[in-house]
Design a protein around this nucleic acid. Structure first.
Lengths: 227, 227
DNA sequence: CGCCAAATTATACACTCGTCAAGATTTCTT
DNA sequence: AAGAAATCTTGACGAGTGTATAATTTGGCG
């Protein structure tokens, strides 16, 4: 029988959830490595410092472990571009920084991203996953919304497409070039940047060739540093 | 040992591949129903009129069966909008027809579409799947390219974004609203249509509010044959 | 019909899976 | 230090998997 956390003193609850998170983290590694369908409890335990039996001590069942891992995953990736947004004062800086960050995380965190697409696809079949997946999707959509809002502010462009409609397009591009990257195509990252750049321009009513307006935010003092 | 088709008379080859396709079709149903990860050979056979042993008579192994099914799947969906393209003479007709067809297939063929996204996600993990997935992806991209080319022709708009970059955006929207639809959101279909409509307009340099130009194909006779 | 090969079934094997419980070990409290 | 509680290991169970092979049925042809 799993210990009921509600009947434990505060100190033990901390330790309990602490180990839970520790195991969830290890599970996350295994999930990212071999995928949702192939990640068995024994395999997950083997990538941790415990044996497979302990998983049932900290988690009700496999699904409890998976969802705990997934929630942990979300927290890692949702604020990825926020410092970038806060720092960028010019359209070009935000754009180049965003594109570079996108391409970098696609390559460096490829395994985590593919896990996300794996889980989201499984949510098409397993109803139990949908709530968590929908929450993460919304978080990512919000993140894109913050970026695009900043883009519009810096370029002085109006919003001609809603945030909820914008995110799936970015996501479609990311998923597409992620598959190309994982498949070993070396140009996937640069192609992602080029495609997203066009989507940014499109979504703000700029033709691809147009130079961004960079509506003099405050003082248009310096125009240097193109890219 | 599986019978080698190359050593059989022509008549038996037909029967052999015929049954192969028959079984692949049954497998496709099961795959769409319960997903790639959960589709066992016994489950697949149970949805056919045979027992699971016969699968190894017609297929080398499970992967051989899966890929055969996947190739069969592709053939069904790639020419979906071609008659629509050929028939539409005005921008508005093509647009409304395309949007309606998109929404209809998303609802009616939801299980097949979710299988496609399932398989594409699994290709992120299983290298053996990537070639088939890449081929289907390219076929879908070509299909979108034919549609958008027709859009541009009817609206007299220039191409401001490449076909290879356009497809993932359409696909991202489709995948997004498919998940919403499968999750039971009744407005998913109409939201898909609204979002794709905006993407069409965006990709041709029209602001969302603008009425399509419908550059009166003055003398359609001279433009015939473009396809 | 009788026969042989193709086609199909039925069964078996070795393996992995999630789950569970009993026992061993560590940690904490008093 | 001793007992109690928390934690971890070990091994087992039944179900399900892909694969392989022997047994059986089917169908065409001399």
């Amino acid at each position: 029988m799993t210990t009921d956390p509600e009947r434990l003193p505060r100190r033990q609850i901390d330790k309990f959830t602490e180990r839970r998170n520790e195991l969830a983290q290890a599970a996350l590694m295994t999930l990212a490595e071999i995928g949702y369908a192939r990640a068995s409890l024994r395999e997950i335990a083997q990538n941790s410092q415990f044996t497979h039996g302990v998983l049932h001590y900290y988690f009700k069942d496999k699904f409890d472990l998976i969802t705990c891992s997934v929630r942990q995953y979300k927290a890692e990736c949702v604020t990825r571009y926020d410092t970038l947004i806060a720092a960028a004062k010019r359209f070009e800086d935000l754009e180049s920084g965003f594109l570079k960050a996108l391409a970098t995380t696609m390559c460096d965190d490829a395994h985590m991203h593919r896990l996300w697409y794996d889980l989201r696809s499984q949510a098409l079949y397993e109803e139990e996953l949908r709530q968590d997946v929908a929450f993460i999707d919304q978080s990512l959509s919000d993140m894109i919304a913050r970026v695009t809002a900043r883009f519009r502010l810096l370029a002085g462009a109006p919003q001609i497409i809603s945030d909820g409609e914008m995110y799936p397009m970015y996501d479609g591009l990311f998923e597409h070039y992620l598959l190309k990257h994982v498949s070993g195509q070396p140009k996937a990252a640069s192609e992602l940047k080029a495609a997203v750049r066009k989507l940014i321009r499109l979504s703000m009513g700029m033709s691809g060739a147009h130079r961004p307006v960079t509506k003099a935010i405050k003082h248009p003092s310096a125009r240097r540093g193109r890219n």
